[in-house]
Design a binder for these strands. Structure first.
Length: 863
RNA sequence: GCCUGGGUGGCGGAACAGGUAGACGCAAGGGACUUAAAAUCCCUCGGCCCAUAGUGGCUGUACGAGUUCGAUUCUCGUCCCAGGCACCA
């Protein structure tokens, strides 16, 4: 095997081999233990980016490893194919979203195949096909029947640039998650999924999915935002009506001195009617509706409010509490009304200072008197109740409980739990999505499309409006229909579903992707689900992952699946980053636009010195991207895969380094060379498999190292997916092999060498499958694919080296080291330690207090 | 402000259960081979100190304390960085 390592020559052949033999097709085999490995499917943007490569490489290693471990592995891939970019691209390129999407899928599939991922392509699915969204529509009608899908008019997040509404989760810092434009409030009638019904269940199960990173479950918990408190009813002076507030601090009720209502609160206008505040209120609420929500939620937003002219009565002490409307009160949370306790809430405190409202402390910190001290900020801690009638003197937390009991007895209020989570708004005023299968009839109201009329096909013969927005409302033949209930003319819903709906059940669809009688075959889902290992970016922590958990519960309660949690284990891989280069004149530069000269870099356009900026997430705008295709051309898929795994552990950010890639390429070359060098000697030799003791020193070292490496690599993959350290240990083994002289090798050495060589190839095969297959075959193992070979196992009796290296400390400081036979006892080790010259020097005449001896490791002599 | 991570050589990163800090790789420097270069191979590589150059000494894992025979690892406090949430009553 004199030829050089040339990935171009070997990779396509193996990819072809895997494809034609349908090697990675998965079947339900009840007696085999299943393993469902899933990576988040991509949006077909047209090109695989390096983040995908990393994500899918990690997944592929696990899939291939689990197969070698004997699992029946399901490893599918598909396309999250509905979505806005297709519409924008279609307008820009004068094509159709369907065509644009189809072409992108083809291009990306080709790229994925070039990377050698072991997918079961028979299960490929695309969410924009009627075969897929038909069942989503079917589910929608079932959810409608259960009132799990409902319509309501409300203030929604509207993105002007995307011409559509967004769910709360899809607004980041007041901006659209997709395009980054500021979102504004708009009143619209929309379809919602009642995710709030599952708030408690979703929250409590966060504790029951230990295979998820704590970071993600914490983010979900925060998003759900459970608060335990009470609802309290306040009578309105001179009225029979009451205002109900939600508070987490019922213990502070005696300190409530005023009240704030959200500007949208229905009582605001009616209370002010006829008072001299009417005009001011009207002006204020009008202004607030124009104020966009993102501005209103800015931290430095000035607290502002207007007196309504009315008063509420504190049910405990009869205090008159002026009712305000305030910009910080949110209609969507709690009851839209707040009892304000300025002494114990910082926000209320600031408001009270501004409008000169009374501040009455009702809790004092232990042993501190605050009654007659002017407060500079609210006291939010615990303490002893004061100014609180019969509750004075109690510890405030206890008082809270007793007061809630009192409320319930006297019908003043009750214990209540509030969640931050809102229902999931799924209507999108866009074309390229799954039509919502509803019909509006003047007589019957909203009527679901009957099963036999599903799917409601998305019409393909349309012209997209150039300014954006959906063509569907103007498409007569789509809109006009008849009511399935009464047969009279009716109108079709023209909104489409949020694309996060498709991705909330695709993992179930993979189990039986061709099923045309149901969403999925129950038998297949029962076998494969839940997903054993899910891998993807952390950016979906509260979007896709929360929606998917919710959907699984819906399916569970419809009796369609047996489980509640779709993903048993979750790995969120870090971003791929690269250093940026910036020219003061030309902005960010591509690497090839900077020339280096004497340690510094200069812009090729203007000669300015270039600022080598910080390492940042790869993005087109920063010009620090790299193209996977070009990399594969230069180094081959195996090198690209290897680098993605070697440069950092998967959950951490990965810093891209061209030189690092080069290093990985060199490593594969080195293996190729050693294999070539030893091939004539070991090709027809039986790998050594006996005891280590029967070998000579050098052979034994290599043999033991081989077994140690198997142990280490197995543990690294099994326990933590730390492929970087797994690869390091294989490198160590290879280094030892390099040091073995082929010219002096006897029969036994060759057999040990063959064992080492086989081990290296097998251990690396999930990571660099092409070169592994090639070497495996060339070693004379036939053209049997390597993934059918079992993962190597190690012998416990071959892990121990002949001698232990023991280090000696005196008073905890390292003073010497020696090797000693592995069956030496403690006394022998201690004696040997004391006799070390350098050690003896430090002991001198000082009496020894204590000697600590850790077998195989160290001796510490304490003076 | 709150919640999660994280801070180790010139760089990416190791150290599994409190026991040799810096595995493995990159970069750098030196050498071998070569007419030369590339490739390859070998050596050195945290900092400082020493007439003894060693199996040498001191110091070193953001900073300051503590527990321990021994701390990158455990505890407390401080600083910095990244991500998430943020007027949620």
């Amino acid at each position: 095997m004199e030829e050089q390592y040339d990935p171009k020559k070997i990779e396509p052949g193996w990819q072809n081999e895997w494809a034609t033999s349908n090697r990675f097709a998965a079947n339900e085999t009840p007696d085999a233990e299943k393993y469902y490995l899933l990576e988040m499917f991509p949006y077909p943007s047209g090109k695989i980016h390096i983040g995908h490569v990393r994500n899918y490489t990690i997944g592929d290693v696990v899939a291939r490893y689990k197969r070698m471990m004997g699992f029946n592995v399901l490893h599918p891939m598909g396309w999250d194919a509905f979505g806005l970019p297709a519409e924008n691209a279609a307008i820009a390129n004068n094509t159709h979203p369907a065509r644009w999407t189809r072409e992108n899928v083809e291009a990306m599939k080709k790229q994925l195949k070039r990377l050698g991922f072991s997918y079961d392509w028979d299960r490929e699915l695309s969410t924009c096909t009627p075969e897929y969204y038909r069942w989503e529509q079917w589910l929608f009608t079932r959810m409608f029947a259960k009132k799990m899908a409902y319509q309501k008019e409300s203030h929604v997040n509207w993105c002007d640039s995307c011409h559509t509404v967004l769910a709360n989760e899809q607004v980041e810092n007041g901006a659209c998650w997709r395009c980054g434009k500021q979102v504004r409030q708009k009143k619209l009638k929309q379809w919602f999924f009642k995710i709030t019904d599952y708030a408690e269940d979703l929250l409590s199960w966060c504790e029951k999915i230990p295979g998820w990173p704590e970071k993600v479950t914490t983010m979900q918990k925060n998003w759900i935002g459970k608060s335990v408190g009470a609802q309290i009813r306040f009578p309105i002076e001179g009225s029979t009506r009451v205002i109900t507030v939600f508070t987490t601090r019922p213990d502070t009720l005696y300190g409530a001195t005023f009240m704030c209502l959200a500007p949208e609160h229905p009582l605001v206008r009616s209370l002010s009617k006829g008072t001299d505040q009417e005009e001011a209120i009207s002006e204020f609420t009008e202004r607030m509706t124009h104020e966009n929500r993102s501005d209103r939620s800015m931290i430095n937003f000035e607290k502002e409010g207007v007196f309504t002219g009315a008063f509420a009565v504190n049910p405990m002490n009869g205090r008159r509490m002026p009712i305000y409307t305030a910009n910080f009160a949110l209609m969507e949370y709690g009851t839209g009304a707040v009892m304000s306790v300025p002494a114990h809430d910082q926000r209320d405190f600031e408001f009270a200072k501004k409008y000169e409202l009374p501040i009455i402390p009702v809790i004092r910190p232990d042993g501190v008197s605050i009654e007659n001290v002017a407060l500079t900020e609210a006291y939010t801690g615990d303490g002893e109740m004061i100014n609180s009638g019969p509750f004075c003197g109690l510890e405030n937390r206890r008082a809270a409980g007793e007061m809630v009991e009192y409320f319930e007895k006297n019908k003043i209020g009750k214990k209540t739990i509030s969640y931050r989570l809102r229902d999931w708004g799924i209507s999108r005023q866009r074309y390229w999505g799954a039509p919502i299968p509803m019909i509006f009839c003047d007589k019957c109201g909203p009527v679901p499309v009957p099963d036999e009329d599903l799917p409601v096909l998305l019409p393909e013969d349309v012209d997209l409006p150039v300014g954006g927005g959906s063509p569907l409302p103007n498409l007569e033949e789509f809109v006009k229909t008849t009511c399935p209930a009464c047969g009279l003319p009716a109108r079709r819903e023209t909104d489409t579903m949020d694309t996060f709906v498709e991705s909330s059940w695709y993992f179930e669809r993979y189990c039986s992707p061709g099923c045309d009688t149901a969403m999925f075959e129950k038998k297949a889902v029962d076998y494969w689900m839940p997903v054993d290992q899910y891998i993807g970016g952390v950016e979906h922590a509260v979007l896709h992952l929360l929606y998917s958990r919710y959907f699984t519960r819906v399916l569970h309660d419809l009796g369609l699946v047996e489980f509640k949690e779709p993903f048993t284990r979750l790995l969120t891989q870090g971003m791929v980053c690269k250093e940026t280069t910036y020219c003061p004149e030309h902005g960010f530069l591509f690497p090839e636009e900077a020339r280096s000269r004497s340690e510094k870099q200069y812009c090729t356009k203007c000669g300015h010195e270039v600022v080598v900026g910080r390492v940042e997430k790869m993005s087109k705008s920063k010009k620090n991207v790299i193209d996977p295709n070009a990399l594969i051309d230069a180094y081959g898929a195996d090198t690209v895969r290897l680098f993605c795994l070697f440069a950092a552990p998967p959950e951490r950010d990965l810093e891209w380094s061209e030189q690092g890639v080069e290093g990985c390429f060199r490593f594969l070359n080195r293996i190729w060379r050693i294999a070539g060098l030893w091939m004539p000697l070991i090709k027809n030799v039986v790998p050594y498999d006996g005891q280590a003791d029967a070998l000579l020193v050098e052979e034994r070292r290599l043999y033991v190292k081989t077994h140690q490496t198997i142990q280490k690599v197995t543990a690294d993959i099994e326990q933590r997916f730390h492929f970087n350290t797994a690869i390091s240990s294989v490198m160590e083994l290879v280094n030892m092999m390099t040091a073995t002289d082929a010219k002096k090798a006897g029969d036994l050495t060759c057999r040990v060498m063959r064992r080492a060589m086989d081990t290296v190839i097998l251990l690396l095969s999930p990571m660099v499958p092409h070169v592994a297959e090639e070497l495996w075959t060339r070693m004379g193992n036939g053209r049997e694919t390597i993934s059918k070979i079992a993962w190597p196992s190690f012998r416990d009796d071959c892990l121990a080296e002949d001698a232990w290296l023991v280090v000696v400390q005196v008073n905890g400081k390292l003073r010497g080291r020696f090797e000693i036979n592995r069956d030496a006892d403690d006394d022998a080790i201690k004696n040997r330690a004391m006799s070390e010259t350098n050690v003896a020097r430090f002991i001198g005449d000082t009496p020894i207090k204590k000697v600590i001896c850790i077998k195989k490791k160290l001796v510490n002599i304490v003076l």
